[in-house]
Each structure stands twice: as structure tokens, then as C-alpha cells.
């Protein structure tokens, strides 16, 4: 008797938990959860608290004392550090915007079925896998002063002297477009193909021309997806690091915030300053993404696809 009295509430609890979806299957999640906590959340929290403990003897402590915000004050007071935010945005925002805007008409044109579509999408995946290092190396050779690109421009007679396209702002933007555009295009294409084509056909029956159909049917349905595409492209462009060093001018024109973080961590060995810069970097990025997603929340997201 006594044993069943003990056992029944235990079984009941297990049943109640199982009803809410909690049972032994969830143990399968355990390794992944331990993993994410140990290698992602813990380092992140560790970095956050490190950023409030300025390293003794560092530049920030000499200037602003050892208060918890010395590293942050140092960052925002020193124009050489503070301006990296602006530099990064100046490179990342136009590149991401261009990638998204350019991919819309091309994806709109290619959304149907046609011969060679698979080949084109396959070719477009190549630059994603090449990565920034190889793209930068190729850009140096191709767009450098004696490269093919300048040669063609000079032979056609558009310019007299080679145009400087590497080791400056434009080199970095080109590398971001080459690696980022295919990504934005494939994402936009998959959103566009998710939109029900009968809607457009209905509009066309009602006498809408292609521009009206695009403006009033496709674009509103596509906009939420475009917002996501922009965010992901921006994340890629914002973390630009190898190409900013290789095809950019890392000392001045393309000194992006990730270079500043790397410089603080592995050249000055000031890990708390580096963590502070990494946190500022994350915050700036989240602000931009938050603004875009906030705008996206006001858009229609129905069941007709392109929902994102």
C-alpha cells in the first residue's frame, strides 16, 4: 500500500511533464546545450565582465583611472578608435544595401524556370565558398594597376592612367560585393520563388502592368524577406576583416572596428580593451539590425510566401 502511495504522484508528475513535451527525449539536447553554454555564452559573459575590468598599466587606465568604464571611455574619447565605427558603417552599409538592391531585379527576372538556372546558381555559390582571403588575393591581381581590368579600361580609352581600385576603400567594397552579392541573390531568389505566382496572374487579369504588379503585389510580399536578407548581408559586411587588411588601407581609410579589436587583443595584449571593442561592435551591429527588424515588424507577413 505504502509503495503505491509513493509511486502514484511520481508517475503523475512524469505524465504531466510529458504532456507539456518534457520527457527523456530532451536529454538528447543536453550535449548541444552544454556546448553552447561552455563555448559561446560563457566566453561572451566572460568578455563582457572583462571589458569592465581595465587591465592595469594599459593606455585606458593611465588616462581614465581603473574605473569600470575606463576602456569604454578610452574608446569613445580616442578618435583613432571611435572613428572605426563610422568607417565600418561606411563600408558595410552601402555594400549590404547594394547587394540587396541589385539582387532584386536579377532575382525577379530569374524566378521562373529556364534552362541553365541550376548552372547559374551553382556558379554564384562559388564566391561564397572561396571566402574573403582568396577574393582579396584575386582582386589584387585583377584590379591592381597592371591587372586585366585596368588594361581593358585603358585599351578601350576610358582612362589614360590606371585607376586605383585596390589598397583603398573601393577594394574592400568590391570584395564585399563579390562575396556578399551571391549570398543576397540566392536568399532573395528563394524568397521570391516562395511567393504564390497566381497572385500576380490575378493582378495581371485585372489589367495591372508589370510595374504595378511588382510595386503593389510582389514588393510588399517580398519586403519582410528583403529585411532579413539585408540583415544577414550586413552581418557579413560588418565583420569584414581579412579583406580590409589585404585589399584595403588598414592604417587609415579602411581601419574597421574588427581590426581595432584584433590590434588590441593580439598586438597590445590588452584583452579587456579588446573585449570592450568586441562588445561595442556587437552593440552597433545589433542596433542596426534592431532598426531594420523593427521596421520589418510593421510589414504584412501573411501566408502567401516570401514571409522570411
Amino acid at each position: 500500500m505504502a509503495s503505491s502511495a509513493v509511486a502514484s504522484p511520481r508517475i503523475a508528475l512524469r505524465h504531466r511533464l510529458a504532456e507539456r513535451g518534457v520527457d527523456r527525449t530532451l536529454l538528447l539536447l543536453l550535449p548541444a546545450v552544454v556546448f553552447v553554454v561552455a563555448l559561446f555564452i560563457y566566453p561572451f559573459v566572460y568578455g563582457l565582465q572583462l571589458s569592465f575590468q581595465p587591465q592595469p598599466g594599459s593606455e585606458a587606465v593611465n588616462r581614465y583611472g581603473s574605473g569600470p568604464f575606463a576602456d569604454y571611455r578610452n574608446f569613445f574619447a580616442d578618435p583613432y578608435l571611435r572613428d572605426t565605427i563610422w568607417t565600418t558603417l561606411k563600408i558595410g552599409l552601402p555594400a549590404a544595401l547594394f547587394n540587396v538592391l541589385a539582387s532584386v531585379p536579377i532575382a525577379y527576372r530569374m524566378r521562373g524556370r529556364f534552362r541553365g538556372k541550376r548552372t547559374i546558381t551553382t556558379i554564384l555559390v562559388v564566391p561564397i565558398t572561396l571566402g574573403t582571403v582568396l577574393t582579396a588575393e584575386g582582386l589584387l591581381a585583377f584590379m591592381g594597376p597592371t591587372g586585366w581590368f585596368n588594361r581593358i579600361l585603358m585599351d578601350v580609352g576610358i582612362v589614360d592612367h590606371p585607376v586605383r581600385l585596390t589598397h583603398n576603400y573601393w577594394g574592400v567594397v568590391f570584395s564585399l560585393v563579390i562575396t556578399g552579392f551571391p549570398f543576397a541573390f540566392l536568399l532573395t531568389l528563394s524568397y521570391l520563388t516562395g511567393i504564390d505566382p497566381t497572385l500576380e496572374r490575378a493582378a495581371s487579369t485585372l489589367g495591372a502592368n508589370w510595374f504595378q504588379r511588382f510595386r503593389h503585389i510582389t514588393l510588399p510580399l517580398l519586403a519582410p524577406g528583403l529585411a532579413i536578407t539585408f540583415c544577414l548581408s550586413f552581418v557579413l559586411a560588418f565583420s569584414v576583416f581579412p579583406s580590409a587588411i589585404m585589399v584595403g588601407e588598414p592604417a587609415r581609410q579602411t581601419r574597421v572596428i574588427s581590426i581595432a579589436a584584433f590590434h588590441a587583443a593580439f598586438e597590445q595584449y590588452d584583452y579587456s580593451m579588446a573585449s570592450a571593442i568586441a562588445m561595442i561592435m556587437g552593440a552597433v551591429e545589433l542596433i542596426v539590425i534592431g532598426l531594420v527588424l523593427g521596421w520589418r515588424a510593421r510589414l504584412y507577413r501573411g501566408a502567401t510566401g516570401g514571409k522570411g
Binding site: F44, Y46, S239, A261, A265, S275, A278
Partner: peptide, 15 residues
Amino acid sequence: ILIPPITYGVPLATV
């Protein structure tokens, strides 16, 4: 996946 590698890479490398 959403946060760029450099942002969490610096604290991760520190740890």
C-alpha cells in the same frame, strides 16, 4: 551563426 565570428571570436580566444 548570426553574430559575426570576430565579435565572439575575441572573447572566445581570450577564454
